[in-house]
Amino acid sequence: MRRLSLAFDRGPLLATLMLLPAAALLGGLLAFPLALGVLLGFKDATIGDPGSFIGLQNYRYLLTDPVFRITALNTALYTLVTVLFKLGLGLALALILNQRFAGYRFWRSVLLLPYVVPTVLSAFAWWWILDPQFSFISWALVKLGVLDRNVNFLGNSCLARASLMVANIWRGIPFFTVGYLAGLQAIPKELHEAAAIDGAGDWQIFWQITWILLLPLTTILTIFSAIFTFTDFQLIWTITRGGPANATHLFVTLAYQRAIPGGAMGEGAAIAGFTLPFLALLAWAALGALRTQA
């Protein structure tokens, strides 16, 4: 009994015991399924058939598949463009909402709406906004005489990509705004006052003080937003289902289409497997940024 209590006193044993539940939870619920998914990518499994090990064949095939290539390009473009816009617009909105004006509390909560509404619902709303026949944007433009026919928002590869990006940006702005609002409020007023007394203009104060102090936060917000965007599914699946002619597929929608309705589990897992290095890189960067902040 005494020896046991001594062992506990020394630390390592107690620490291991205390960590076990968390480790079991993480291992069982995250690491194990992930490992299974990665393993599946090396098999020719279909629904109903566990398949056999085929090495890198799925990956090698995908690299030659034009649909996969366009998907990779789409995902990169989609993530890059939307995150940049979300960052810029989110920051701008945060700067505005950081001012005290009549009803600023109301507007701050309204701003959260795109983020609070379930994505499938807002995707349906966007689907109507972008409808080839009944889009109110087209309707207004035609009535105003700007255009003589409806805008083909989703029926043209390039416009479809752009339209989905706009919808994604709309939904993702609040994430940045809320983050930046918190960041802005943490910046001591004295710094701005001191700079103003030294004769700095608004623009200078923003770039030399506000922006610099927001940089660590920007890193974290960008990385997390990139992860969410990279793995976006609902918007795409609701509005275009990857069409027209596979022009709007992202990694996850293509992985789903091939693995679940198409039944090619191994290949779908391999498509998802392609996202892992990027996501790991982003996660590593995020953890690094968090650590330097702490």
Binding site: L130, D131, P132, Q133, R149, N150, N152, F153, L154, G155, N156, A160, T240, R241, G243, P244
Partner: peptide
């Protein structure tokens, strides 16, 4: 115009 984006209900 727009048949390129037609899903089942369109």
């Amino acid at each position: 115009p727009g048949v390129g984006s037609w899903l089942d209900p369109n």
